[in-house]
Structures are given as structure tokens and as C-alpha cells.
């Protein structure tokens, strides 16, 4: 048990899990978006896409949050501040860590919409608004990923 915990909290593993689960979340919401765009009648598939999306983002939050709270502040942040791009922390990291907190409430809302009865969903004319919401979740995930790349690049190459 202790061995598994040590492995999961090993810094490169944490970063890999944070990024990997975020990609799962983004891809699942793009899948959900594709089902809506294609006017899919397969509600089981839409529901699975939303469940995988929420689970992906929640796990990304958990692993990324652990890395951020335990390691980032004492190991990465000082390196970025000593380099030529301190804005990578001051702007990109600060925006990333806070905008990330918007994702779970948005993703759970999209999940609830996926579980609405088909007739109720159509009667309330929700397809377009849900498409925009689901696309926005995927876009925010990608934008947060781009900020993660900036932060990582600033720490590695100054």
C-alpha cells in the first residue's frame, strides 16, 4: 500500500497523471460535443462521455492539486521567478490554478444535462446551449493545458 502511494506521489508520475486525466476529460467532452453536433440518438454513449469527462477532470484536479500544494511552491515557483519569464507563474500559473476551479461545476452541469430525459431535453430546447457549454468546457481544458505548457517551459528552459 505504501509502495503504491510512494509511486503515485512521485513527481513525474503526478504530473503525468494530472496531464493524462485532463486529456481524458477534454477528449470525453469533445466526444460529447460530437454526439450533440451529430444529433446522436444514442443517449447511453452521451452519458458515458459525460461520466468519463467528469471523472477525468476530477482526477486531474486531485493529482494536479496534490502536486501543486506539496511540490510546486517550493520546487518549481522559485526556479521560474529566477528565470527570464517570471510572468509564467505570475500570470499563467495564477490564472490556470483558479480557472481550473470553474471546470468541475461546469462539467457536473453538463453531466446532469446528459442524464435528462430525451423528451424533456428537446422540449426545453437545450441542444444548442448544451453544445456551447460542452465546447466551452473542452476549450477551457485546452487553454489550461496551454498555460501548463508555458509554465513547464519556463521552469525547464528559464
Amino acid at each position: 500500500m505504501m509502495g503504491i502511494f510512494s509511486f503515485l506521489t512521485y513527481k513525474p508520475v503526478l504530473i503525468g497523471l494530472h496531464l493524462g486525466f485532463a486529456i481524458v476529460g477534454i477528449d470525453a467532452f469533445l466526444w460529447y460535443l460530437g454526439e450533440l453536433v451529430g444529433k446522436s440518438q444514442n443517449h447511453t454513449r452521451i452519458r458515458w462521455a459525460s461520466i468519463i469527462g467528469v471523472a477525468g477532470f476530477a482526477l486531474s484536479w486531485l493529482f494536479g492539486g496534490y502536486y501543486y500544494v506539496v511540490n510546486y511552491g517550493k520546487l518549481v515557483k522559485p526556479v521560474i521567478f529566477k528565470g527570464t519569464a517570471p510572468w509564467a507563474h505570475a500570470v499563467a500559473m495564477e490564472a490556470k490554478e483558479h480557472i481550473f476551479l470553474f471546470i468541475i461545476p461546469l462539467a457536473v452541469t453538463a453531466l446532469i444535462l446528459a442524464f435528462m430525459d430525451k423528451e424533456e431535453f428537446n422540449k426545453n430546447n437545450l441542444r444548442r446551449a448544451t453544445m456551447v457549454l460542452v465546447g466551452l468546457i473542452a476549450f477551457l481544458g485546452l487553454a489550461i493545458g496551454a498555460m501548463g505548457f508555458i509554465i513547464s517551459a519556463a521552469a525547464r528552459w528559464g
Binding site: 470553474f102 461546469l106 452541469t109 444535462l113 430546447n125 437545450l126 446551449a129 457549454l133 477551457l140
Partner: peptide
């Protein structure tokens, strides 16, 4: 009503942006 949820979603999208 028939537009209540849609309005809520639009407000949510605008608030997020």
C-alpha cells in the same frame, strides 16, 4: 418554464467567459 433551463445555461456560459 420552457426557457428557464436554457436561460440558466446561457447565463452560466456568459459568467464562465
Amino acid at each position: 418554464g420552457p426557457n428557464t433551463v436554457r436561460r440558466g445555461l446561457i447565463f452560466l456560459i456568459v459568467t464562465t467567459l
